[in-house]
Design a protein around this nucleic acid. Structure first.
Lengths: 233, 233
DNA sequence: CGACCGTGAGTCGTCTGATGACTTTGCTTC
DNA sequence: GAAGCAAAGTCATCAGACGACTCACGGTCG
């Protein structure tokens, strides 16, 4: 076993066995190097791996901390890599999304409160009112996120959020056909929100599934290239 | 932006824009260091991060290669970290698994071939024949994996595989109640396989969902501690 | 002529040492 | 008592050197 693997599995083992608890600060690099029998460089590579996977979080000058270990912490690690998948593989992701969005919508229909309904329709109206495709996309995201939140499963919500982020990169709304697509999309949203407001899980699931399927068809039809944003710096 | 971030996003950008294609070998460390303007140590940390996420794969002495970038490559990166989640968060994962296993079973029922049915029942019989809990667990895994394979979505199959691996860690079959649980589990498997063989998606989905729900109930009831295996060396 | 083997260049893996940057703490000072 | 300062602790980065492994090339032997 390589030195980095030794450090990686050693750290992971400490967390798995509870020796390092969620939110806790892990020993400084020097101590871990000695205990695990590897150099600082190898240890740091292992730390970076676990950090990329959302398990620990180094803080410059302070120490390295175990994350809260919520499922969404770990699932969020997919967000940076799912964007690298070619479109062909992405269609398989859409099938999953279709199933899960339908489930989440049904759950939301069963659990939603009047306040939540108000939020949903407010988002829809804001979406319909704006002309900016970027803002519309952002509101679309928040609309679906709100439904997932109402669904009551944070893990599922974050998983779907990751899937949607990948789709959003394609920015179908900025196409020449964008306005037409947006009208159809807005229609879908109203149907979905209405079904949820009516506490009708079956209708909500059907509307959600149809909405995702529609998006998938658009993507198949147009397949625009991914727009890389360098706005991260 | 830190040096490691610079290297990480730089590499990721090269892959996202297609400058580095799937399966291709990336430039040697020396060149990348110069181009990205970071030291070798920082670059290596970034490489390890992408490797942990299933995007690239270093090979000692040969070079570092971009992975095939299939969705299952990226999803597989969750397998090492999902095991670290506390049980409370895991129950949310079960809800997702329930929905997806039901869908996969329905898909399998619609698509399955006589050969596939033969494989399924062969696995069931092997499962019922063995007394070794470890072997039974292994066969259980292969049984569900086969159904997922028949379902026709490799991404979904690998996602469910990751989820199941987490559950399997608890080894409910080794409990005192193990034999009884296994009998019930075997029953579920026959119902599920029969529904698939009959091309009955609704029955298959119901059976799959009930099976997962059953497992979830066992876990809630017994909550045995995670058994860490050190057989990875 | 073909198969085998050794050799060497290329590449990743690891270690060591030193320096910089940032955070936190605790003390000093007003 | 509060604000500012100093020092210790910790992570971040760099540089250089050596080891381990892979692979292709060329020579050798059958």
């Amino acid at each position: 076993m390589s030195a980095v693997d030794k450090a990686f599995h050693g750290l992971r083992h400490m967390i798995a066995t509870g020796r390092l608890g969620a939110g806790e600060r892990i020993p400084p690099e020097g101590e871990l190097c000695e205990e695990l029998g590897v150099s600082r460089g190898s240890l740091r590579e292992a730390v970076r791996m676990l950090a990329a996977l959302g398990v620990i979080e180094p803080r410059h000058g302070s120490g390295t901390y175990v994350s809260q270990l919520r499922p969404e912490d770990v699932i969020g690690s997919l967000s940076l890599t799912l964007e690298l998948l070619p479109l062909t593989g992405l269609l398989e992701v859409y099938e999953i999304r279709r199933v899960l969005e339908a489930h989440v919508a049904a759950q939301a229909a069963a659990r939603c409160t009047p306040e939540a309904v108000g939020t949903l329709f407010a988002l829809i109206e804001a979406m319909e009112a704006t002309d900016d495709p970027a803002k519309a996309s952002e509101l679309d995201h928040r609309f679906h996120l709100e439904i997932a939140r109402i669904g009551g499963n944070p893990t599922l919500a974050s998983l779907l959020s990751v899937f949607r982020a990948r789709s959003r990169k394609y920015q179908v709304f900025t196409l020449p056909e964008g306005p037409e697509l947006r009208r159809k999309s807005d229609e879908d949203h109203r149907v979905l929100a209405t079904a949820i407001a009516d506490h009708d899980p079956v209708a909500a699931a059907g509307a959600a599934q149809a909405h995702v399927a529609q998006t998938e068809r658009w993507l198949r039809a147009f397949m625009p290239p991914v727009e890389e944003d360098d706005s991260t710096g």
